[in-house]
Nucleic acid binder design. Structure first.
Lengths: 148, 148
DNA sequence: ATTAAATAGTTAAATAATTGAACTATTTAG
DNA sequence: CTAAATAGTTCAATTATTTAACTATTTAAT
């Protein structure tokens, strides 16, 4: 393997790990009762309107039983609710409760301010370029996941 | 908050979550018995030669007791060992066993190949720029974590 | 020099995330 | 119309994590 590539990989492994851990730790401060993963479940349902366990399991790249456990906790907390599908009765539609929607909208404000405080230390172009590359990586990973 | 910034934040939250989850899922395939977090503990000790619980807790941004639990498992697996410090007897130096060192060196090969397969779908300059920005973010997060 | 405060690490109890296998209920296809 | 596929749950086990209480050791203040 080429030496310069190897160094890039080494740097990537170290820095991605660091940023994820520290980023999650900072975000946790804004999320009172809700965990980091639960926050992303709520976000996804909010953006979709309704969604299914299977869809969440695909997005999160985990087993469906992990989603069952997480959604159980969110139902207990009164943040989401389950509704049977009309046409296909195997499907259970997950949606935010009023409480869940309100909580998310308020919390998004705080999270946005946190991320903004970090991002604005970089130039607009640098952020834009960074996110574009990140999105390319997301697509590459998606393809690799599907092909397996 | 400015609208374009808000969109960047939204994109960042979505994509960073996706890449982390899917990246971790892909990496797990290479790590047989060892978990994702344990792999990074081993990596950190390998790079440092020896290190302490407190140092790991700082790097991972978790409590020291979380580190105790993780290192216990790694000791059970025969990957690392604990050694009392000579000068300060409170300190316990963590180091890789021969087995741990060999396992890590072999596994790094596979992980590197995995990351390389992803990276080489982007241009060298794009990766370099991406990692540089990532490293800036890491520094910003570090400062924010310290000031709190 | 002795005591009080700080530091390094562990233990224990609780919660959360995750996997894998076995299971129920429903739908689709041969 | 039965067999296979799909959607979701349950259960048992493992891992990661937090918080509070604890032990052992070192540093600092009087």
């Amino acid at each position: 393997m080429e030496r310069s590539i190897q160094q890039l990989i080494e740097r990537y492994l170290s820095v991605s790990f660091l940023v994820n851990k520290r980023g999650a730790a900072l975000m946790k401060c804004e999320l009172d009762d809700v965990t980091h993963d639960q926050y992303y479940v709520l976000r996804h349902i909010y953006k979709r309107g309704v969604c299914t366990s299977t869809e969440l399991a695909d997005v999160f790249a985990v087993n469906k039983s992990a989603i069952t456990a997480m959604t159980n906790r969110l139902v207990e907390k009164g943040m989401i609710e389950r509704g049977r599908g009309e046409d296909d009765r195997r499907i259970i539609a997950l949606s935010l409760t009023e409480k869940g929607r309100k909580w998310l909208e308020e919390t998004e404000q705080n999270v946005y301010e946190l991320v903004e405080a970090i991002m604005t230390k970089l130039s607009h172009e640098e952020i834009e370029q960074f996110i574009q590359t990140y999105e390319k990586l997301a697509m590459i990973l998606q393809e690799m996941g599907e092909s397996k």
